[in-house]
């Protein structure tokens, strides 16, 4: 009698579970559904996509040569025929240089976060999952880097190494690794204590398998969202390093460096001089809002 009631109850539960699975369209479909209802995030993604297309196809879109200047058309105002956004202190077309400059600015604004994401999440997951001495060693080392304000650390490393794109990327990667490690470690620790990890361990799965099958899928999302929000910071810092003369070197077009060289022109063509900063601002705020939107759509806390 009692066995039949349990099996009946179990059968009922199984039916309910199957219905629940049929009703939900899966995690990513839900994320996409929530994103579609968020016009601000969609708008930011659209602006970023347009900017990406513009800088990828810069050679087709740019009306002039980014390096070719002329002394007779220096510092023209916005709206000059043939030079819609004016010219810089060496007579080069601003629109052209903004299009080409975006390539480097995006490159050094995103690449350090990508590297830091790869290295930082590996170390963070390792620290969070292994615990004990491994955790101690990794987390105490990040504490040291946390003792420097991030701008100062970036300036210190690239200042010591000297100017150059490679050094700037290296410095920024080192700045972001500890920040990603901290997030990765804390989410991994949260997942590690959940029941399904214990169940996997009890059924004899190795540590590597548990991480690959059960942990990665649950922690990469939150780390990814955090990394997206770092792109905004990295854009500002990377262009800031170039602004200080530490990133790209002239005559290479890059937004931060353009802002620096145009600084002397603010008494002649003030509104031309601030244009590269508008590009940095728009990119940075769009990445910031995109990260916020993703965080809400993916239901990541914090």
């Amino acid at each position: 009698m009692s066995t039949t009631t349990t099996t009946a109850a179990e059968a009922e539960l199984a039916v309910q579970a199957r219905q629940a699975v049929a009703r939900s369209e899966g995690y990513w479909a839900g994320v996409w559904k929530r994103l579609r209802r968020d016009p601000l995030t969609i708008a930011c993604a659209a602006i970023l996509l347009l900017m990406l297309l513009a800088i990828v196809f810069a050679p087709l879109l740019a009306p002039h040569d980014p390096y070719q200047g002329s002394m007779i058309r220096r510092l023209k105002a916005i709206g000059t025929p043939n030079y819609p956004l004016g010219t810089d202190e060496l007579g080069r077309d601003i629109l052209t240089r903004l299009l080409y400059g975006g390539r480097l600015s995006w490159f050094i604004g995103i690449l350090p976060v990508v590297f830091a994401f790869a290295i930082g999440s590996t170390l963070g997951i390792l620290a969070g999952f292994m615990g004990g001495r491994v955790n101690m060693a990794i987390m105490r080392t990040t504490d040291i880097f946390y003792a420097f304000p991030s701008v100062l650390l970036a300036v210190a490393i690239s200042g010591a190494l000297g100017a150059g794109i490679f050094n700037a990327i290296l410095a920024l990667t080192l700045v972001f690794i500890p920040q990603i490690i901290r997030v990765a470690e804390s989410v991994t620790q949260g997942v590690r204590s959940l029941d399904f990890v214990d169940a996997a361990r009890a059924s004899g799965a190795s540590g590597f398998t548990i991480v690959r099958v059960h942990v990665l899928g649950n922690v990469l999302g939150p780390i990814f969202v955090y990394a997206t929000s770092l792109i905004s910071v990295c854009m500002i810092l990377a262009s800031g390093l170039s602004f200080l003369g530490l990133g790209t070197k002239p005559p290479e077009p890059e937004w931060g460096l353009m802002l620096n060289t145009l600084r002397t022109a603010i008494y002649v063509q003030p509104w031309v001089a601030v244009l590269p900063g508008v590009c940095i601002f728009v990119t940075s705020i769009c990445f910031n809002l995109l990260a916020d939107g993703l965080r809400q759509a993916m239901d990541v806390k914090g």
């Binding site: 500002i236 800031g240 603010i266 940095i280």
Partner: peptide
């Protein structure tokens, strides 16, 4: 708040100089 954390502050400084010093 979002604008405050996303603005390249060195650029904001230049804009303020343009408005309050130059103009």
């Amino acid at each position: 708040a979002v604008a405050g954390v996303s603005v390249p502050h060195y650029w904001l400084g230049m804009v303020l100089v343009v408005v309050f010093s130059v103009q």
